[in-house]
Amino acid sequence: MDRRQISSLAHTDHPVAAPLSDASVRSLLDRALPGTGARLLDLGCGSGTWLTRALAARPDLRADGVDSDAQAVAAARRAVEDAGLADRIAFHAQDAAHFDSPHRYGLVLSIGAAHAFGGLLPTLKAAEGHLAPGGSVLLGDGFWEREPGRSILDAGFAADDYEDLATTVDRVTAAGWVPLHGHISTLQEWDDYEWSWTGSLSRWALDHPEHPDHAQALETAAAHRTAWLHGYRGTLGFVTLLLRRADRA
C-alpha cells in the first residue's frame, strides 16, 4: 500500500486534508470567495472538497482543481458528478507546480500542499502566476507553536521544516503579501483530525482482515498515532491565511 492509498483511506471520515473543522472551512470560504462570475483554482486539490463546497454555495463560480494523485482526482470527478457540479469544476491530474491555464483566477487555494512546491514562498510564487488582478490566495501551512524538541525530531520532522507563527507571517509579508485574515487551527481541530486519520485507517484494516495490506495499515495508523501523541501534538500548528498582493490592483 503506497502513501497515496494510505492517505485516501485515512481521510475517509475527514475529507478536508488539514486540521480544520467544517465550520472553519465555511468561515474561510465565506471570507475568501471572490465576486460574481470569478474562477477558483485549487493547487493540490486532493479529492476536491474545498472546490465542491465553494461551488455548491455559489452557482456563479467556476473552478479548476489540480493534483498529482490520479486516484484522488478520479474521486473528485465522481464527487462533482454526484453533486451536479461537473459542468463547473474541471480536475487535472498533474503536477500542480507545472499547471498551465489560459484563465486567471479570483481565488487560488493551496491548503497543506506547500511540499509540492518546495515550501511556503514557492507556493505563493506559483499561486501568484495564476491570479487575476485583485485576486487573493488562501494558503494553509504548518508552523511551530513552540520550539520542537527531541520527540518531534524523532517523529521524522526537522527543526527547519517550519518557523514560528510570527516569523511565518513576517516571511509572507516580506514577499509582498498582505494578510486579510488568518485562522489558527485549534487543538480540538487537530485532535479531531488526527483521531479521524488514525481511526479511519485502523477501521479499514479491522474490516478487511484478509486483505494483504491489513497489517501494514494497522502499523501505519499506530506509528502515526504515536508520532502525534508522543511528538507533535501541541507543538505543530497550522495556519490558514487569506492573502492579497499590494502591488496587484
Rank of each mutant, 00 (worst) to 15 (best):
D192V: 00
D192N: 11
D192F: 01
E194D: 00
E194S: 00
W195S: 00
W195P: 00
W195K: 00
W195I: 00
W195V: 01
S196W: 00
S196G: 12
S196Q: 04
W197Q: 02
W197V: 00
T198L: 03
G199Y: 11
S200E: 00
S200M: 01
S200D: 06
S200R: 00
S200K: 01
L201A: 04
L201Y: 05
S202M: 07
S202Y: 04
S202Q: 12
S202T: 15
S202H: 10
S202N: 07
R203H: 14
R203F: 09
R203I: 03
R203Y: 08
R203W: 02
W204C: 02
W204F: 07
W204R: 05
A205T: 08
A205L: 09
L206Q: 15
L206A: 13
D207M: 00
P209D: 10
P209R: 05
P209G: 02
E210F: 07
H211C: 06
P212R: 07
P212T: 03
H214R: 14
H214L: 07
H214M: 06
A215K: 11
A215E: 15
Q216N: 04
A217I: 05
L218K: 04
L218H: 10
T220V: 14
T220M: 10
T220W: 11
A222P: 02
A222T: 03
A222C: 09
H224K: 06
R225I: 03
R225F: 13
A227P: 03
W228Y: 15
W228D: 02
L229P: 04
L229G: 05
L229T: 15
L229I: 08
H230S: 10
H230V: 00
G231I: 12
G231D: 12
G231W: 07
G231E: 14
Y232N: 08
R233L: 12
R233P: 14
R233V: 10
G234V: 04
G234Y: 14
G234H: 15
G234R: 12
T235N: 08
L236D: 02
L236A: 09
G237P: 13
G237T: 11
G237Q: 13
G237L: 07
G237F: 14
F238I: 14
